[in-house]
Simulated assay, not measured.
Amino acid sequence: MPIATINIVEGRSDEQKEKLIEKVTLAIHEAIDAPIANVRVILNEMPKQHFGIAGQSVKKMGR
């Protein structure tokens, strides 16, 4: 049973997250021939102040 864990910064719509889960599931299915029913996708959504680039949080950077 393949499990994909994806870390993303908050701010995406439910529709975007649903589409991401669908596309990742299909990519795993196509890449390794795993049955779609066996593919698991976990999205970890983090606050913007919990992710940094070049010494600043993305919240502080305005992203």
Score class of each variant (00 low, 15 high):
47 P>V: 09
40 R>P: 03
50 H>I: 08
23 K>S: 13
14 D>Q: 13
28 I>G: 00
62 G>F: 05
41 V>G: 01
49 Q>W: 15
21 I>Y: 07
25 T>W: 00
9 V>T: 11
43 L>E: 05
26 L>W: 07
10 E>M: 04
36 I>H: 08
17 K>V: 03
41 V>Q: 01
56 Q>H: 14
17 K>D: 01
53 I>R: 09
23 K>Q: 12
13 S>A: 01
14 D>Y: 08
12 R>F: 06
53 I>Y: 14
14 D>R: 13
57 S>P: 04
51 F>D: 04
26 L>G: 03
46 M>H: 15
9 V>M: 11
47 P>W: 07
13 S>F: 03
35 P>T: 08
14 D>S: 11
50 H>V: 10
11 G>D: 03
56 Q>R: 14
46 M>Q: 14
63 R>Q: 10
48 K>F: 06
59 K>H: 07
3 I>P: 01
41 V>S: 04
50 H>C: 12
44 N>V: 15
1 M>E: 05
26 L>T: 09
2 P>S: 00
40 R>E: 08
58 V>R: 02
1 M>I: 03
42 I>C: 10
8 I>S: 01
60 K>T: 13
45 E>W: 06
5 T>H: 08
25 T>G: 08
22 E>T: 12
35 P>A: 09
41 V>P: 00
19 K>A: 11
63 R>V: 11
22 E>W: 07
4 A>N: 04
19 K>R: 10
55 G>T: 01
9 V>R: 08
5 T>L: 05
6 I>L: 03
30 E>F: 07
35 P>K: 12
18 E>N: 11
41 V>F: 01
22 E>V: 09
22 E>H: 12
33 D>T: 09
50 H>F: 15
25 T>A: 03
11 G>I: 01
14 D>I: 11
48 K>I: 05
1 M>A: 04
27 A>Q: 03
13 S>T: 12
7 N>H: 12
25 T>C: 02
50 H>Q: 14
58 V>F: 03
26 L>R: 14
34 A>S: 12
35 P>E: 11
30 E>G: 02
54 A>D: 09
32 I>R: 02
21 I>D: 04
14 D>P: 11
47 P>G: 12
63 R>P: 06
60 K>F: 09
43 L>W: 03
25 T>Q: 01
32 I>E: 01
1 M>H: 05
54 A>Q: 11
54 A>K: 13
2 P>I: 00
42 I>Q: 10
20 L>Q: 02
16 Q>Y: 05
36 I>M: 12
63 R>E: 14
33 D>P: 06
42 I>R: 09
41 V>I: 10
42 I>H: 07
37 A>C: 13
36 I>C: 07
57 S>H: 06
24 V>W: 00
3 I>Y: 04
53 I>T: 10
52 G>H: 03
4 A>Q: 02
51 F>S: 10
37 A>N: 15
36 I>G: 08
40 R>Y: 10
24 V>I: 12
2 P>F: 00
62 G>E: 04
8 I>L: 10
42 I>T: 11
40 R>N: 10
33 D>V: 07
26 L>S: 11
